[in-house]
Design a protein around this nucleic acid. Structure first.
Length: 679
RNA sequence: GGGGCUGUAGCUCAGUGGUUAGAGCAGGGAACUCAUAAUUCCUUGGUCGUCGGUUCAAGUCCGACCGGCCCUACCA
């Protein structure tokens, strides 16, 4: 450990629009473990994070709550930090993107982009909500497609004809904020031409700073064609920083968020008498970002481009992780598996989750699954049964006499454990925590048989064997101490308790190489409770989100509000509006496989007599063509025809569900005949 | 369709081209009682998705196919 490294580590900045949940924690725990590991190895390592506080969503949430944005983000930041502290996540600095330090760094990066002639301006026609006094993001506008006349289309492209357009081209646009008709206003937007750095990115992506699988993905997608200029401005009002040389315009939240890494570092430097340049402009400092796969292109395309242009160091490594699932499914509020950090802490020990995640995380960009049964079994069996048990079963025999003065012959166990420290450290370094945990548990599996074979409980019965008893316990406790050192990045609490038990704090990895001798052994206290499955269940039960105002009559139905939340009810329409929609009962008379299509089935629908329609329906994953023939369905009969890849579709079948396999066609009760109108 | 990833025991996963493919958990049997119904020992269980190819040698490399996931294009 001669070469001390200087390492700056970040986790993605949590957005100040909601509480921390167990999905977020995959990232923060992973990063915290890595940072603690580096610190134990004697490196200079700082962990930098901040709340990501800007953007439209924050404005809307603050408005809803009736507080200022500043009040809103202050409260959220406090809540985030409480959660992080509760899980033992220790930042060296936790800042905010809404800070003077960050503004200063944004200005600096911005000036560099200007100087490098990376920024272009373009007038864009955008819709303005007069009532709310703000420009509307594309997704906040709906209206009629200018090309095909389909109603209720989003502001960026038509779901019907596929035409892309600007929201200003929509016919009869409606604001999603106020429901009023917005007016067209021109606004100047600023774009960063990252295409200018395409060659640099091609090379950087392959440099080893990005996981291979991500590099391959980027190479085959974004980098395979010219990179689109990045729209980094938003017209006011917008909660963010106003662009100094473009009054009335604000930096888009994704511009100032990553710069928040630097801004928060600046804050830390100011507090600690350090120079920012030593961390962000130094070849001897490593920079490691930990992020989720969903935001990789910000961190692997835009971010390096910004850093390079502004003369900052490039990331040494971008560690990318997958998403968290629970029991094989996405986290779900209705199932109670969307668990907030604070809710977890009400019921369970944070160390359980720290260990469980560590035992699942690898250096690959893979989703991990929190299997509830496995969670209980693994923590109880590995940590309580094997590791902690080692101390629990021997400490009290040694309490009276302490540890032996001379390390006894243990058949090479201590030396073996000490040697194992190197591969374990390698696994930690690579982010392969699951491998590290496996190796540590292998050691624990060698320590327990040692105790078994030397039966201290038998030795205790014979006063002549007192020395032997002390020796056996000294060995077992030293082995336990080695395990605690190796687990310390994951389980700092266990390391601390081990330090208390044996009278010497655990602070450094190298302590695993030398046994403790001749010191007293303190009274053993339980180091970790077993996981109580009942508490896990209680946590899940309390996390279930149900409809608040369910009328008494339907209380027996436990339908969740998930579907409604996913797609809120549309604005009110008049009866005339409704009558424009011509729904008809139709019979499927033909259903053909479209071999090249992934989602579509070609249907011939009969409205009775000779009236038929050719319809492409996106139900391939949910229905077999054969089972559809003869079926009565409900179709939109007067929908404008749409040209699709495999032909023209002349209508739409009514179905519910989120798509893919979750598609449920509606069919009439018996007696209905094709051609009948539905109203 | 294009791009990326993935398929090893009931479950979660290891397996630098080289002896009869491993671990943990779960299952079965026994021992022990120091320990938080902890521990230890023994044991059941796999055509390594399928088919080809390269090689003296393939779970491992290559190709095709089949299945799963993600992004994207066609969810009227």
């Amino acid at each position: 450990m001669s070469d001390e490294r200087k390492i700056l580590v970040t986790s993605a900045l949590p957005y100040a629009n909601g509480p921390i949940h167990i999905g977020h924690l995959v990232e923060y725990l992973q990063t915290d473990i890595w940072v603690r590991f580096q610190k134990m190895r004697g490196h200079r390592c700082i962990y930098i994070c901040a709340d990501d506080t800007h953007g439209t969503a924050i404005m809307i949430s603050a408005q809803k709550k009736g507080v200022t944005e500043e009040e809103f983000i202050a409260e959220m930041s406090a809540s985030h930090q409480t959660d992080f502290t509760g899980f033992g996540i220790e930042f060296d600095n936790y800042g905010s993107t809404n800070s003077p330090e960050n503004l200063e760094q944004c200005n600096r990066v911005w000036k560099s982009l200007r100087d490098a002639d990376m920024v272009v301006e373009e007038e864009i026609e955008q819709l303005f909500d007069v009532e709310k006094g703000q420009f509307l993001a594309d997704r906040l506008v709906r209206g009629t497609c200018p090309k095909c006349g389909s109603k209720d289309q989003p502001g960026d492209n038509c779901g019907n004809c596929g035409e892309t357009y600007s929201p200003a081209e929509l016919v009869d646009p409606i604001s999603g904020l106020s429901g009023t008709t917005p007016e067209i206003r021109k606004a100047k937007h600023l774009f960063v031409q990252i295409e200018k750095e395409h060659a640099f990115l091609d090379e950087w992506i392959q440099s080893g700073s990005v996981p291979t699988e991500s590099a391959n993905h980027l190479k085959g997608s974004f980098l395979n064609e010219p990179l689109r200029a990045w729209d980094i401005s938003r017209p006011g009002p917008y909660f963010g920083f106003e662009i100094p040389d473009s009054p009335g315009n604000y930096w888009y939240v994704w511009f100032d968020a990553p710069i928040g890494y630097i801004g928060s570092t600046q804050q830390w430097c100011d507090k600690n008498g350090e120079k920012l340049e030593d961390w962000w402009n130094s070849e001897s400092t490593e920079i490691h970002h930990f992020i989720g796969k969903d935001i990789q292109y910000f961190h692997t395309l835009f971010w390096p481009t910004m850093l390079k242009t502004a003369g900052f160091s490039l990331p040494t490594k971008v560690h990318i992780h997958g998403f968290l699932g629970v029991d094989g499914e996405k986290m779900s509020k209705s199932r109670g598996t969307f668990i907030n950090a604070s809710k977890y802490l009400e019921h369970l020990d944070p160390n359980f989750l720290r260990y469980y995640y560590a035992s699942k995380l690898s250096s690959r960009v893979e989703d991990i699954d929190l299997n509830v049964d496995e969670f209980v079994a693994k923590v109880n069996s590995d940590l309580v049964g094997k590791v902690v048990n080692l101390a629990s079963r021997t400490a009290k025999f040694a309490g009276a006499v302490g540890l032996s003065d001379k390390y006894p012959d243990d058949g090479g166990l201590f030396a073996e454990f000490a040697t194992a420290g190197d591969p374990i450290a390698e696994a930690y370094e690579a982010g392969d925590f699951s491998k590290a945990m496996r190796q540590i548990l292998e050691l624990a599996d060698k320590a327990n048989p040692f105790v078994e074979n030397n039966a201290p409980w038998e030795l205790k019965k014979d006063p002549d064997k007192a020395q032997q008893l002390q020796d056996v316990c000294s060995i077992a406790l030293n082995l336990f101490r080695q395990l605690s050192i190796y687990l310390a990045p994951v389980l700092p609490d266990i390391a601390e308790k081990c330090g208390e038990l044996l009278g010497e704090p655990i602070t450094n990895w190298e302590q695993s190489k030398t046994p403790l001798l001749g010191t007293p052994v303190n009274k053993f206290k339980h180091m970790m409770q077993r996981v109580d499955p009942k508490k896990v269940q209680a946590m899940i039960d309390e996390s279930v989100v149900i409809e608040e105002t369910a009328p008494a009559v339907i209380q027996n139905f436990d339908d969740s509000d998930e579907a409604l939340k996913a797609e809120p009810i549309e604005d009110e329409i008049s009866f005339d509006d409704f009558m424009k929609l011509d729904l008809r009962v139709a019979r499927v008379v033909e259903a053909n496989e479209v071999p090249e299509a992934k989602k579509l089935i070609q249907l011939k629908l009969s409205l009775g007599g000779d009236e038929t329609r050719n319809v492409f329906a996106g139900v391939k994953e949910a229905y077999e063509p054969a089972e559809l023939v003869g079926k009565l369905v409900v179709m939109v009969a007067n929908l404008a025809p749409r040209k699709m890849k495999f032909g023209v579709s002349e209508g739409m079948i009514i179905a519910s569900g989120s798509g893919k396999k979750e598609v449920y066609m509606l069919s009439p009760d018996e007696g209905a005949v094709p051609g009948q109108r539905v109203h």
